[in-house]
Design a protein around this nucleic acid. Structure first.
Lengths: 211, 211
DNA sequence: CATCACTTTATACTATCGTATAATATCGCG
DNA sequence: CGCGATATTATACGATAGTATAAAGTGATG
């Protein structure tokens, strides 16, 4: 009989690590969650796979987030913030007229890094989670309306500037649907579609109705 | 000490049941899967919750399907077949001209029972699964192209009948995106959107480009 | 009414789930 | 340089996951 290599009473050696600020670790876990959702989908993304992906131990998730659901919700919040920043940048760079601002707003989400197959996929995944995950739903309701409100206001201003009267609410929804459709179509077949060209093709009817 | 009520050696009484044809049981499990996905989402839909929802025992899933993934894939196939049947019916009822057929095809999916918040939600859920679930991906690739092919052909025929030349592939993608967008927008806020009106609003630009 | 194929249930199995607790390594500060 | 705060790891816990196997009920057939 060989001697048993395992020594049940000896403590296992502990991994060395370096401390980091809570904010840094939180962001690392959020990024790891995003990558897990891309690679594994929702059902197979566990707190353990997330911790592994981040190169951290299991306990870190519960140390920095109240629960797995909260980590998911914060990941959704992070993705939303990215789009929001890119949109703000695009609006700042565009001309000041309502028409130019409107065009910038619509096109902002149709170029990298937002127009990224992983980003779009996970965004859709979270929209689905909205229906069954309470924490995600709360973040969604808190954040989602902003973009739509901006769009609605610019559509109204553009029409007024052109002396036209439109049903701004309906036009807003049409544009939202077009954007989501372009994203989704592209996410399902990235090579076959150029979302920017796709939206540009339909946008004239919008401009027409606003003048 | 009380007497132990449990009798470890006595067999538990077995539920009575009635036999049904395999096809019937398969459909019952598929329907139960759909309802579980609506109510619980993907991550919390287990073979046990499905069996409970169907009022059947756990073993039935593996008796009638090779695995949970296959059951999911067959559920997706069932949803696709529903849309396909509704589309075929709409085409049969519509006028024979390419333009009428095209209109019927686009509008077919924008009324009940396809335009159903649960149906749309689960359909989107499966589109997401396409990326991480091999079995679902295979069904998707087998089935998904048909609708798009029909649409493409009708767009081409309509343009030819009107003596117009269009990039049918691009127009097809635009219409697909519009449809998906309308569905998704409606699934996120069913009260705020009328998908049929929404598509009708943008459709003129399509008709224009085809004549 | 006995037989038998097959549907169906019950249960076991191992792995992994999210969460909870205790021990320990790290680093700022005196 | 040693101490204290806390970030971090290790491990445990009950519940549940998907899958596998064996036993038993059902209904058609003769």
């Amino acid at each position: 009989m060989e001697t048993d290599d395992s020594q049940p009473l000896a403590r296992a050696p502990r991994r060395s690590f370096s401390k980091k600020a809570p904010d840094v670790r939180r962001q690392e876990l959020i990024d790891a969650t995003f990558r897990c959702l891309v690679r594994l989908g929702e059902a197979e993304t566990s707190v353990r796979t997330i911790a592994d992906e981040a190169g951290l131990s299991l306990g870190m998730v519960r140390h920095h987030f109240r629960s797995k659901d909260e980590l998911l919700a914060e990941t959704y919040r992070h993705l939303s913030a990215q789009l929001q920043e890119q949109t703000a940048r695009a609006l700042a760079e565009a001309g000041p007229s309502p028409g130019e601002q409107l065009h910038a707003l619509v096109m902002a989400g149709l170029r990298p890094p937002i127009l990224d197959r992983d980003y779009i996929r996970v965004r859709f995944l979270f929209w689905g989670l909205t229906h069954t995950n309470e924490a995600v739903r709360r973040v969604h309701e808190e954040i989602y309306g902003r973009f739509q409100q901006q769009l609605h206001d610019l559509i109204e201003q553009t029409a007024r500037a052109n002396g036209a009267t439109v049903d701004a609410a309906t036009v807003t929804l049409a544009v939202m649907a077009l954007l989501k459709g372009a994203w989704l179509e592209w996410s399902l077949a990235p090579d076959a579609v150029d979302p920017q060209a796709l939206v540009a093709q339909i946008l004239p009817v919008l401009r027409e109705s606003l003048s």
